[in-house]
Design a protein around this nucleic acid. Structure first.
Length: 589
RNA sequence: GCCACUGUGGCUCAGGGGUAGAGCAAUUCACUCGUAAUGAAUAGGUCGUGAGUUCGAUUCUCACCAGUGGCUCCA
């Protein structure tokens, strides 16, 4: 039997795919009434969807694991065979696999219909697979969850079981240990422990409280972003958090986004109906509309640190990543067609600069999000316009030095997007940053400029964010650094630790001097042993600990300890301040 | 919204139909300490919320709220 090369993506894939079949075989043995959905390999691991009235319990999972172990020991060969469409349907009918029957109907005419069999278990499947069940020597079922048939919320919900498998126990243990480690970085855990944020049940879902450390980080990022934007030719606005329904009717949000908005007042009662803003675009457009614009005014770059409200459905909220109220580094660029490419590139470059400075540039991937031409109700504009703008955007993207994937059906309702994606500790992907080309809203809002020939033209609009939503970005930073943020982002950069109460006064003076030098310093004036103070500061991820005792006071120095490097010896105060200021300004690690 | 799981003092958790405990953390006093875990004392919980069953519920039932994982949706 061929040995599996786990570094080979295809072999790994086949391994996990066969693991899914192994699990399905065990499930069918234990619960014959279960109907099979589908069971593919994932990036890491596998899952299989089953139709069953009851969800699988933890005890069920254990029983399934045990049954899988038995099947492995049976050394069942895995064999492929092909059937005609009629034979295939007959077989699946006999087995009562109604979902598989649906799948057969989806296989295009002329394509071969293949099955894989191991022992009594047969599954409709394109493969490829392992040769024998005994190759799967180590596995673990990790969790269950509901999943709609065909990923469609109108279809029945199946029970999905997730698992991981490896050719040997060592590899499995390594994977499980890594999972454990990743969980320890979960921003939702450390962000609360380190007191960046909290939630309160009687405030509500998706409405976190940023505690002082959380707000400090927010503020540091906001100042950094706004300064950088200003340097790059942006002007900042501050626009209302709500508007009359009329505004959203012009933009189309009222019709395309209504379920996502918090609406105040009732049209039926002829109230004045207002809605909290789910995005900033129509507000900033009003800034553009204050006077007649010439091509000489363009590009016009508006930015805003903008708080938005979206009525996400209840199951969606997650830590700081998915919220009902959040604040985004919003911006809109009003450009002529000739400026589109350059301004688009600059927008992406600004985002990349932000990612690089935060240390996240290695962790993101790029997605060119296009419309779904089979679902036109979701979008405004004609198919011809969509094709034209998407081609234009594709052209711009290929001129840039980025690898991107294309995704259908991920566009905004008014235009295609470049999404910068990032994964959290659980491997779940979210959009961190987005740059979008909008060829629709300028027309709707009658935004125009006078071109060289004196003719009125609709500009293009680039919707973009430089750092994304602050809350989400903060979440990913906390996970990236496991709470130990680089100095420039640390809410508390240095903590002064007096050896005893005797040294409190000198320690206070040192703290004040550091603050005067623009550093974020605090004093631990507790009546505790210095060892304990150091330990606490380490746990709270403070980058620098400054110990003050008789020796230091006599010498006019400070004993410096770094979280990363341990004892750094004693430094004269002026030298310490220079060191910290230098590191603070560096930003890049 | 759907499928599940969870909810006992700041944290980790124990307990169990008769109105609650432990360790750590906290506070005060003593000690004034050079890399946490000395001594003494104190405080802190209507056991997520509401209703039902019961003589009595934190413990049983139901509903709701919130947190978490998955699906759908989305920044």
């Amino acid at each position: 039997m061929a040995k599996i090369d786990f570094n080979d993506a295809e072999q790994r894939h086949a391994f996990w795919h066969s693991s899914a079949h192994l699990m399905a075989q065990a499930v069918k043995r234990l619960y014959p009434e279960v109907q099979l959905g589908t069971g593919p390999a994932k990036d890491k691991g596998f899952f299989y969807d089953f139709y069953r009235e009851k969800a699988f319990s933890a005890d069920d999972l254990q029983a399934i694991e045990e049954e899988m172990g038995k099947i492995v020991k049976e050394h069942l060969p895995i064999e492929r065979f092909e059937l005609s469409r009629e034979e295939a349907k007959k077989l699946m009918q006999e087995k009562g696999e109604n979902f598989k029957l649906e799948l057969i109907d989806l296989i295009p005419e002329g394509e071969t219909i293949s099955f894989y069999q191991q022992g009594e278990f047969v599954d409709l499947c394109a493969g490829p697979h392992l040769e024998n069940t005994q190759q799967i020597q180590a596995f673990k079922l990790l969790q269950t969850g509901g999943a709609y048939w065909h990923n469609d919320a109108t279809k029945p919900m199946l029970q999905r079981i997730f698992g991981i498998a490896y050719p040997d126990k060592k590899m499995l243990k390594k994977h499980l240990d890594e999972l454990e480690e990743a969980r320890k970085r979960d921003h939702n855990k450390i962000g609360r422990e380190l007191e960046y944020f909290t939630t309160v049940d009687y405030i509500g879902q998706g409405l976190p409280i940023l505690l002082p450390k959380g707000y400090k980080l927010f503020q540091i990022l906001q100042r950094f972003v706004e300064d950088e934007e200003e340097r790059r030719g942006y002007q900042h606005t501050r626009t209302p958090l709500m508007a009359k329904a009329d505004l959203y009717k012009i933009s189309g949000h009222w019709y395309h986004y209504r379920d996502g908005m918090f609406i105040i007042g009732d049209e039926a009662n002829e109230d004045e109906v207002l809605a909290l803003r789910p995005m900033t675009c129509p507000f900033q457009f009003q800034a553009y509309l204050t006077r007649t614009r010439s091509y000489r005014d363009l590009p016009l770059r508006y930015a805003e640190t903008s708080t938005l409200f979206r009525n996400e459905s209840s199951g969606e909220m997650h830590g700081l990543i998915r919220l009902r109220q959040f604040t985004i580094s919003e911006g809109h660029l009003i450009v002529t067609p000739e400026q589109l490419e350059d301004e688009f590139k600059k927008s992406v470059e600004l985002a990349q600069f932000m990612l690089k400075t935060m240390g996240l540039e290695e962790d993101v991937s790029y997605r060119f999000s296009k419309w779904d031409q089979n679902d036109r109700a979701k979008y405004i504009g004609s198919p011809e316009e969509w094709e034209r703008v998407q081609q234009e955007m594709f052209r711009i993207l290929t001129h840039m030095d980025i690898d991107f994937e294309e995704a259908d059906g991920e566009a905004a309702f008014y235009g295609p997007k470049l999404d910068i994606q990032i994964k959290n500790v659980f491997g779940k992907e979210d959009t961190l940053i987005t740059v979008q080309i909008d060829f629709q809203l300028a027309k709707k809002f009658e935004m125009e400029y006078i071109d060289r020939e004196g003719n009125k033209q609709n500009p293009y609009i680039i919707h973009r964010t430089s750092i994304g939503c602050y809350e989400r970005t903060m979440a990913l930073l906390l996970e990236k650094y496991a709470g130990a943020l680089p100095l420039w982002m640390s809410p508390e950069q240095a903590r002064v630790l007096p050896i005893s109460d005797k040294h409190l006064e000198a320690a206070q003076a040192l703290t004040d001097q550091l603050k005067a030098a623009g550093l974020r310093a605090t004093l631990d004036g507790r009546n505790e042993k210095v060892g304990k103070k150091i330990k606490d500061a380490q746990n709270e991820k403070v980058p620098y600990m400054l110990v003050m005792g008789d020796q230091e006071i006599a010498d006019g120095t400070v004993a410096v300890r770094s979280r990363k490097e341990g004892q750094l010896g004693t430094l004269p105060l002026a030298e310490l301040i220079t060191k910290l200021q230098t590191e603070d300004k560096e930003k890049l690690r």
